[in-house]
């Protein structure tokens, strides 16, 4: 017995090493599982406030660009608003409330982001106090940015579209063929459009937008443009489509968050009928 203890004492460093390594791997795994509760991440109050201070300084230099983009977007929205103004010589009728207020929008600022890893995340400066919930979609005027992963009181952490774990239900605008956009972890300006059958005539230059099927994003938010069409090497039934992303992820500063107010109802319906809804 004494010998065993002596032996264990002699290799204590190795035992400690194995223990710590297992702890680290456990953290990686639990952090990457979709439902895994993330206790330690940048939505932590202390870490979030540090990141916010940093972002305050860094983003000061890109204020001019951000302003310009906001002005352009305002102009576009004003243009669209004209269509909805009631003209005195016309008849209007109000839509059913179930159709009108499906999506709610909120704004936030990105205070931390990465784009060089395989699993990239964003940290936002708003949290549950401001009505941010896990699962909300994130986009900016350029296109889709990501999806909220977890929230704390004042901050939120989100999957970037540049995260191999995120799939966005999307479609080719011209032909209405739908598929899923997923990043392959290689180039931060390109992603793949998966599950497009081979008979579809896809061309370089076709626009890819969100489909509105997975109840996260409303229909029609830009994702990118198809830059390469090839038959899939692994599965001959599908096409291998490369999408050039429209969003410049190195310059994502201000974003919009969108929530589908009927998501819970849809989700429970899916569950009831045992359809797994991709996220």
């Amino acid at each position: 017995m004494l010998r065993i203890l002596q032996f264990l004492y002699r290799i204590r460093a190795f035992i400690l090493f194995v223990f710590l390594e297992v702890a680290a791997v456990w953290m990686i795994v639990s952090n990457n599982s979709p439902q895994g509760a993330a206790f330690f991440n940048s939505s932590n109050a202390l870490v979030g406030s540090v990141l916010k201070k940093q972002a305050d300084v860094v983003q000061f230099f890109s204020l001019a660009d951000a302003n310009e983009a906001l002005t352009a977007e305002n102009a576009e929205i004003l243009q669209k608003l004209q269509l909805f103004q009631v003209k005195p010589d016309s008849i209007t009728f109000t839509l059913d409330s179930a159709l009108t207020a499906t999506y709610q929008f909120k704004g936030a600022r990105v205070i931390g982001s990465s784009l060089r890893y395989s699993q990239n995340y964003l940290t936002l400066n708003k949290g549950s106090k401001h009505g941010i919930k896990p699962g909300m979609g994130i986009f900016n005027p350029e296109g889709v940015v990501g999806r909220v992963k977890s929230v704390s009181e004042n901050y939120a952490v989100a999957f970037s579209l540049l995260n191999t774990g995120l799939m966005v239900s999307s479609k080719i605008k011209s032909s209405d063929v739908f598929g899923s956009v997923q990043w392959d972890g290689k180039n931060s300006s390109e992603a793949r459009l998966l599950f497009v059958p081979r008979h579809v005539k896809a061309q370089e230059g076709d626009t890819v937008i969100t489909s509105g099927f997975n109840a996260v994003f409303p229909e029609g938010i830009l994702i990118g443009v198809i830059s390469k069409v090839a038959p899939d090497a692994k599965d001959p039934n599908y096409l291998d489509l490369t999408v050039k992303l429209n969003t410049d992820f190195s310059k994502v500063n201000y974003v919009y968050l969108v929530e589908n107010t009927q998501f819970t109802e849809l989700d429970s319906l899916y569950r009831q009928s045992e359809i797994s809804n991709e996220y």
């Binding site: 791997v25 953290m27 952090n31 990141l51 699993q119």
Partner: peptide, 13 residues
């Protein structure tokens, strides 16, 4: 570092 980098466990390991 992981807490700030949003890469929980990777730098630690």
């Amino acid at each position: 570092l992981d807490v700030f980098y949003e890469t929980i466990g990777m730098h630690t390991a």
